[in-house]
Amino acid sequence: MIEVKKVYKSFQNATVLSNIDLQIEKGSIFGLLGSNGAGKTTLLKLIAGLYKQDRGDILIDKKPVFENEDIKQRFIFLTDIPYFFPHYTIKQMANFYENIYPSFSRERFQTLQDVFDLDLKQKIYRLSKGVQRQVAFWLAFSAMPELLILDEPFDGLDPVMRKKMKNIIIQDVAAREMTVIVSSHNLQEVEDISDHIGILHKGELLIKRNLDDLKSNIHKVQIAFQGSVPSEMLQQLQIVYQEQRGSVHLFIVKGNADEFSSYIKSFKPLLFDLLPLTLEEIFIYEMGEKGYAIENILI
């Protein structure tokens, strides 16, 4: 389990992160969202033990990460621009990883060669940006980490590769209970793999949610009544947003769907539809509640 407790970090005099509280359970995939400059990379680097927080604690399995070799052996941090030693081939780089990470599996490395289909003797710096990122994934997966920290990992990958990488991540999470933290400025990119989402804005963690809870807790309802909507009903429902098109009313309602549908039905509406929300819509309303316009936070 990863615990981030009341963490503050500033560079010189600029505060980058303030009062970050976060818990990530083992085996979950945490999507960290935020626009450029929100502090995503800094938070990841703090969790990876590269930087030291000014205040607060960052614990993995109850132990501080900074300068802790035992813990660092168990995770891999993939930076937004993958780094390889100059003039190294894939083979040489794999040797390096094998030497550094005790959990590195040569079999896994060889198995994954089918996925990536790259020549081991290639010098990495000659490869394209996207292919270099594939090599970084390849090495990371082969190291069989318990925690994989990915900073904007899908940039520069084509859709097919993106899908493949995501599949491998999901397989590893399912098979080995690997934990994943993945950052992105794009909601759609992490929506399909994350089970938890956190939104970082100007150094503060605005929202951290379980996606399943989030999806089951907010709904779009379309209703039409003969005459006006009963005000008694409106008072009872937790309405986040409403809109009227002719006689059809559109509500965004929070709460248990079963409970409020039967309650609404008791007023005998002419029309009643319960519609799912996209994750983006959910955030628009969630953030709107908190006084933020999501367009400013996620693009």
């Binding site: 389990m1 083992k26 993995i60 399995d61 070799e69 035992d70 052996q73 168990r74 030693f85 190294y88 040797n95 390096f96 094998e98 030497n99 550094i100 005790p102 959990s103 318990e146 925690l147």
Partner: peptide
């Protein structure tokens, strides 16, 4: 929730050969 497997640590030695090579 145990992450680490003790037997793996025996693989690490004080000197990282590959780092020296680099």
């Amino acid at each position: 929730m145990k992450w680490g497997k003790k037997d793996m640590q025996s693989k690490t030695s004080l000197f990282k050969k590959e780092l020296l090579i680099q």
